[in-house]
Amino acid sequence: MLYIFDWDGALIDSADKIVCAMQAAINQLGLPVITDDEIKAIIGLGLPEAIAVLYPAERLEAREELARHYSLECAMIDENGLCDVFPEVREGLGWLLEQGYTLAVATGKTRKGLDRMLRNHNMSHYFSATRCVDETASKPDPKMLLELLEELGVPAVQAVMVGDTEYDLAMAKAAGIKSLGVSYGVHPVKRLLSCSPLAVVDKFSEVVGYEISCDRCCMAE
């Protein structure tokens, strides 16, 4: 069985960092004010796609400038202190490896951003493969998952996607992969359930403890 995890919101408690970095970048550029909840709603998308949702009327150049400022703010925040790993995550990932499962990451972060976080949190050793948004298509396009399946030689029926956003679970559904939602991230349970996951769980130990049958597959409709 292959477990594919989202990074922000499923493994790492980074929502406040993302909101803080985006609000700082918006303020620096003098763009129209948006709420923290509006920013949280687009967590999980690739950065260009997320900014296009937040500022659809802005010129491409302005959106690209916002992306640059946001990335700089994230790097500065990472240098000044780490986001917390969610409770039970390290223990749970270690247990899954001990049982012989393969682990991977599918994230809306850039390669530079994910590698920095993996290094800072000393978590690279858990994962056999990772895929970032600047290497493929943004969620909810299934390309990211299909590439991981091909790289690791795992059929879709033997994989499960674990995420905290509708984008994660919709991506899994489009790829024909089972999914588990986690309620401790950014999207409300109602949004997660709209994508027909196997379940929505409240803590990471319930991800590890959920019995997943390889002969059940959430096929794309």
Rank of each mutant, 00 (worst) to 15 (best):
V201C: 07
C20H: 15
E206W: 03
I18E: 12
D16R: 15
V201S: 04
E61V: 14
C214H: 10
I177P: 02
G46I: 05
W95A: 13
V89L: 05
L180P: 00
D115W: 01
I4T: 13
L103W: 08
D202C: 01
R90F: 04
C218R: 11
D37L: 10
H187K: 07
H121N: 12
D16H: 15
H187C: 08
L149Q: 09
I34M: 12
V133I: 06
A104V: 09
S194P: 00
H187E: 08
E166C: 00
E73F: 09
L180G: 01
E147C: 07
H125E: 13
R90V: 11
D78E: 15
V157M: 08
G81T: 02
M22H: 13
Y101N: 13
K203G: 01
H69T: 00
A137H: 14
P140N: 10
D78M: 10
R119P: 00
F86G: 08
L66K: 05
S194M: 07
I77Q: 14
A106R: 01
A10I: 04
P56R: 11
Y70G: 05
Y55R: 02
N80M: 09
T136S: 14
V200P: 06
A52I: 04
G185S: 08
D78T: 01
K40F: 10
H187T: 05
P140Q: 05
L66T: 03
I51M: 04
T130A: 12
L47S: 15
A137R: 14
G176D: 09
L193W: 11
D215W: 04
A159I: 10
K143D: 12
L169S: 10
S71E: 12
V85Y: 01
C132K: 04
Y101K: 10
G181Y: 04
T35H: 08
G46W: 03
D115F: 03
M144T: 08
L45Q: 07
P142I: 07
N120Y: 02
P140M: 08
I212H: 09
D78G: 02
Y70W: 12
E150H: 13
V162M: 02
S213P: 00
T165F: 03
L145N: 11
N80Y: 01
E65Y: 00
V33K: 15
L97Y: 00
G30P: 05
P142E: 03
Q28L: 13
T165E: 11
T136A: 05
L11N: 11
A220C: 05
G46P: 06
I34V: 15
S128F: 02
N120L: 15
H187W: 07
L93E: 06
E38N: 15
E98T: 12
N122H: 14
S138D: 08
V157T: 13
D168Q: 11
A24C: 12
E38R: 15
V105M: 04
D164W: 12
G30Y: 02
A24G: 10
N27I: 02
Y126N: 06
V207D: 05
E206N: 13
V105L: 03
S205N: 09
I26K: 12
G153C: 06
H125M: 07
R111C: 05
P87V: 08
E221C: 08
A52Y: 11
A75L: 14
S179A: 14
